[in-house]
Design a protein around this nucleic acid. Structure first.
Lengths: 206, 206
DNA sequence: TATAATCCTGAACGAACGTTCAGTATAAAA
DNA sequence: TTTTATACTGAACGTTCGTTCAGGATTATA
């Protein structure tokens, strides 16, 4: 029940460090090998901790992965908040969105493991829920962005929910297709895609 | 080495029927349960054939799935050829493309199993190749379509390869996102998405 | 009829892997 | 110091599942 990173006794400190070590190693492995191909034993070997110890810190393999996804989204949010102030129009924001997306997807590519993870079945109910939550979060994010654009006249006022889903679809598809591309090409691809999307939803007098 | 479905002796006939039975049952199972969740034993039980017999007709589980994907794409192509004659402009073709896509994806949804399959690792080299071939085929298809639109002035003349990839991305993402939608909503979503895409690539005086 | 090719069976293999748990060590609390 | 909570170990479990294989049955071939 600590509020921040303060006043940890020896035991709590060690525990926290171990958890961090496991999380970091797991992240690297998931990124390189994918979700399924990374075994708990791999993580165990990479950290020096025992398998059992991993289960002491995380509920399950899926729980561990969700933990990493959470961290990833938080980092993403922080970066976004840093960048968003630099953009004036929502159009610019969308380009910035795409840029951060592609950089994030190709450098911190949990994304590959993530899409593998999402397409797995046999997910316990709570995991499924968590995933749905995430998608809803993304859609909300997109909707807010689009609403801004509509409010200030950049975009046509159309069915926002639909537009948000389409944007999300586009991004998912792009991250799928760009996996075998070089960074430069991926960036170009994302930009072009956003450009098309923007032309598609822009208010006629652009 | 027969050319068509003619002149089969009793043995060959039985063999072909068995293969068909296995393929059909496997297809139904993959559709309902997904790729990984469908075991060879499931297929064995559904057909009455033994596990070993399935391996007599198909190289492996993956080979069986690829066989089904091939069939699926062939059916798709046939339907497309039937429809394409009805459309005049390439714009209409793209709407028709989307329509067939969504109907196909939600009725014959190997698509769910397919995206699960694609995201699997541990694929032997030849399987990976086959998949890449398929993607290339799709891109080629898209490129041809776009080229037509450019030739007759419907679309702006831009980097076609890029546009083709973006279209493919959009479709992949849509099929991903629309999985939990009702058919009506999915159709609407696809149409709207294509509309945006078309606005994005259309020649200014539309 | 005899031999070979084809179709099919079903038990068994084997390897992977997430998860558990009884037990140990270390540090905090009493 | 004694007791209790926490951090960790590592062997073992259990289950799943794709794949193989020796052999039997059926049909074609010589």
């Amino acid at each position: 029940m600590e509020s921040k990173g303060a006043a940890l006794n020896k035991k709590q400190l060690q525990s926290e460090q171990t958890k961090r070590r496991v999380a970091d190693a797991a992240r690297a492995l998931f990124v390189n090998k994918g979700y399924k191909a990374t075994s708990i034993e791999d993580i165990s070997e990479a950290t020096g901790s025992s398998k059992g110890n991993i289960y002491y810190h995380f509920k399950s393999k899926e729980g561990l992965f969700l933990y990493l996804l959470d961290e990833w989204e938080q980092e993403w949010e922080v970066k976004w908040q840093e960048n968003v102030s630099h953009y004036k129009t929502v159009t610019d924001k969308l380009y910035g969105f795409a840029k951060q997306m592609v950089l994030d997807d190709l450098n911190h590519p949990l994304s590959k493991a993530a899409s593998e993870f999402f397409n797995h079945d046999e997910k316990p109910g709570d995991v499924e829920e968590r995933i749905i939550e995430m998608v809803q979060g993304h859609l909300k994010f997109n909707q807010d962005l689009l609403q801004q654009g509509i409010d200030n006249g950049e975009f046509k006022a159309e069915n926002i929910e639909c537009l948000a889903i389409i944007l999300e679809s586009l991004v998912i598809g792009l991250s799928h297709m760009s996996r075998q591309l070089k960074l430069q090409n991926a960036i170009q691809l994302y930009q072009q895609a956003i450009k098309i999307y923007l032309y598609g939803i822009a208010n006629p007098p652009h």
